[in-house]
Amino acid sequence: MFMTKSSLRAVLGAVTLALLQPLPAEAAGGDHISIAKQPWSFAGFSGQYDKEQLQRGFRVYRDVCKACHGMKRIAFRNLVQPGGPEFDEEAVKALAASWDNKITDGPNEKGKMFERPAKLSDPILGPHKNEAEARDTFNGALPPDLSIIVKARTVEPTAPWYTHIFLMARDILTGYQEAGADYLYALLMGYKDPPAGVTLGDGMSYNAAFPGHQIAMVQPIQTEGSVDYSKDDSGKAMANYAGPKMSMEQNARDVTAFLAWAADPSLNDRKRIGWQAMLYLLVTTFLLYLAKKRIWARVKH
């Protein structure tokens, strides 16, 4: 008994001591990047995509991001399917045919590869044929494919360690899955003048959200906004336009929503079926519990 008690006391003592020590910084360089949560329409366990927002977001992608980034896992037909931007099929056909990054097909009868306009079933390509060509263009940097970028990014927790378990519980109960979108939005909004003492590398920009803060991508969306939704593709003002105004924040928010959809196109179905499944499971569990009570009613246990 004595032995166990004293060892217990020793362990407790060590625990207390270690709690008083500061924890080592997690990220290299020791700076915590705090990324704020954003109010996404598709957030949580009940959120769904906002079709209009996805349509606006696609415009931002087309007018801004496409210059460097492809979306090879998204086909033009996906822009038509339910649960996405749901553009009109004929409009997307025309869009595909006029997409300036052509599809390489072939070989033809002469054994040569050839370029042809995209069809509905073709992927949405960026300007570069392959990684080497992209790196050559961008001084060694690679603009990543944006098809699943929102799923491929996350936010590292910066809260004190003893709160982690509560944050975990909160995230699980609220169905928080939007860390990637939050990060991307923060990145698009994160271009700042470098603080004093920071020397940027050649061709690099300062970004508050990017790990290490030096990013090769120049600020994609201008401070006053880059895409004016109230004008159509030819630049004419649309009559009776009632949507949101052009702003950096709005552009960033919309394109992030669009990319979130691209990374997880089944989200609407998933949550709808999820609620049906949850309802069914709750009812059945409750019924089974009552049935179990009924069966065990006369057996004490």
Binding site: G175, K271, G274, L282, K292, W296
Partner: peptide, 28 residues
Amino acid sequence: MKDAVGMFAFLIVFAWFVFFLPDYLGHA
């Protein structure tokens, strides 16, 4: 019957992750 209750209660948690947090337990 008791197993069935336990299993369905477990399935509630299971389904919660499948439908609402499919990537929570993985890595970005």
